[in-house]
Simulated scan of single mutants.
Amino acid sequence: MRISVICVGRVKEQYLRDAIAEYSKRLGRYCKLDIIEVADEKTPEHASEGVERQIRAKEGGRIAKHIRPDAYVIALAIDGTMLSSEGLAAHINQLGLHGESHIQLIIGGSIGLDDAILRRADYRLSFSKMTFPHQLMRVILLEQLYRAYKINAGEPYHK
């Protein structure tokens, strides 16, 4: 299985980069992982909804260039479906059983994802009703993907 994580912005903090590198290395046993970063837009403080919509559209255009037509696209969205770790593992397993060989997971920028990207997604996944920094979300997502593969392999880790 090929997993691509498409995300807005660069991770600046070394401790987060280290965690991303560690989970990327661990995932290498189970899948081919690509992390694709697209440039983020500066969001002015107290930006109007119109300005935020324009920013999401610009970032969305950059994301769209990397979405493969043959990929199963999962957008991380606060209004998406919440799954347990076992539920995510089962979802990934089912995708593989149904012939999906490429999953693309999309993490938006600090103000979320463009509506066009959300419409293109085959599935919307929510990790919580809480808001997380998008750089930290990358670490959380990779950890949960690693956990899902361990669960599906029947290996200890998920407790």
Rank of each mutant, 00 (worst) to 15 (best):
M1L: 11
I3A: 01
V5L: 15
V5I: 15
I6T: 02
V8M: 07
R10F: 11
V11R: 05
V11Q: 11
V11P: 08
K12D: 14
Y15I: 01
R17L: 14
R17E: 09
A21D: 08
E22D: 15
R26N: 10
R26P: 06
R26C: 12
G28C: 09
G28Q: 03
G28W: 07
R29W: 04
R29M: 11
Y30H: 11
C31I: 09
L33A: 03
I36A: 00
I36G: 00
I36V: 15
I36P: 01
E37K: 10
V38D: 00
V38R: 01
A39R: 13
E41N: 09
K42R: 14
K42F: 13
E49R: 13
E49T: 11
E49H: 13
G50I: 03
G50E: 15
Q54M: 10
I55W: 00
I55M: 00
R56C: 08
E59W: 07
E59T: 04
E59C: 07
E59D: 02
G61W: 06
G61T: 03
I63F: 01
A64R: 15
K65G: 08
H66R: 14
H66Q: 12
I67G: 02
R68S: 15
P69N: 10
P69G: 03
D70S: 13
A71H: 01
Y72F: 15
V73W: 01
V73T: 14
I74S: 06
L76I: 08
L76R: 04
L76Y: 06
A77E: 14
T81V: 11
T81C: 02
M82C: 09
S85Y: 00
E86V: 11
G87S: 08
L88N: 07
A89V: 10
H91V: 00
Q94L: 12
Q94W: 11
L95A: 07
L95G: 08
L95Q: 12
G96P: 01
G96M: 07
L97E: 15
H98D: 14
H102E: 09
I103C: 06
I106D: 01
G108W: 00
G108T: 00
G112S: 09
L113E: 09
D115M: 08
A116N: 13
I117Y: 03
I117S: 04
R120G: 08
A121L: 09
Y123D: 09
L125M: 11
F127L: 09
F127H: 05
S128F: 01
S128Q: 01
K129C: 00
M130Y: 03
T131P: 01
F132W: 12
M137S: 13
M137D: 04
L145M: 12
Y146F: 14
Y146A: 10
Y149E: 11
Y149N: 05
I151L: 09
G154I: 06
G154Y: 02
G154D: 02
P156K: 12
K159H: 15
